[in-house]
Design a protein around this nucleic acid. Structure first.
Lengths: 147, 147
DNA sequence: TTAATCTCTATTGATTTAGTAGGGTTACAC
DNA sequence: GTGTAACCCTACTAAATCAATAGAGATTAA
């Protein structure tokens, strides 16, 4: 299960993706629109800012904007920032590799072998889907395939 | 990430799969062989027993055996028993569906749509891989494909 | 200059994780 | 028929994580 926090982050980004270009959206507007506790959302957006996903403007008329175009922000990178490694085992993580405590011969680990496939399949989906895909009207994928 | 408990469960089952047919394996042997805390393993095997994956014999000369052949026990069903739902969102779980608190129109949820693909891809791997696959010598898959 | 807005750190209660503890029950071996 | 080696079951606990809340600080437009 992904965390509530990650869900909030993705929803918040879809709001920013749908905003007019260059127009910052206030935290409180995002929070209201997506039913996210405002103070919690503040932390989330701050994380996303520190990791280069969004930018902010302070003071009156301030708010948040996407730093990159929505079709350049993948679900995978957002999940990594908020929830940590995508991989189901530490020894399969690309960004946070760690040997399993109870495993000595990693190459021959029966478990690892199977979960490597799971990780690949998951990554394939998460890194090929962007925030733009999420906000696209349903049926857009078909449209694109026909184009 | 899957839990340590699930990893232990899968490893324990591979031990049972490699045991001689009809020969029970003692908890302490499994624990020693796979470096699993014995008392913790007791609980795990008990769960697996209650869910019809293994059977036990009590008393002296007792131990555990697989209830079904190893190639009929999938990673998916073991994970469900130990870690709960496979799905990354409660609203995508087959066995434990629950509406997301913050979501009213499930059909049009942008997030759900993406994670449905993740769930499908994950299930495809987890329910097509069995304990028998895990214990099979490396290269067996290729062998099978050439056969 | 003031009010609206983001920034940052700390704290908290609930839940989950990864075990430990400690009896109880069963059945083989002698 | 008794001892003891095995599984059975429930409860407990320490640490980590999750989902927030709290509150003071910094910045900027009006």
């Amino acid at each position: 299960m992904i965390t509530q926090k990650a869900k909030y982050a993705l929803r918040a980004l879809t709001v920013l993706a749908e905003a007019d270009d260059g127009e910052p959206v206030m935290i409180s507007d995002i929070a209201a629109q997506q039913k996210i506790p405002k103070k919690f959302l503040e932390q989330i957006l701050l994380d996303l800012k520190h990791q280069g996903i969004v930018v902010s403007r302070r003071g009156k008329q301030g708010g948040y904007l996407l730093l990159k175009p929505a079709d350049m922000i993948t679900f995978g990178e957002v999940l990594r920032i908020i929830d940590g490694p995508i991989a189901p085992l530490p020894c399969l993580s690309i960004t946070a590799y760690r040997k399993c405590d109870d495993c000595d011969d990693e190459q021959n680990c029966e478990i690892r072998h199977v979960f490597a496939k799971v990780a690949d399949a998951t990554r394939k989906v998460l890194f090929s889907t962007t925030i733009a895909d999420a906000v696209a009207p349903r049926g857009a994928e078909v449209t694109r395939m026909l184009a």
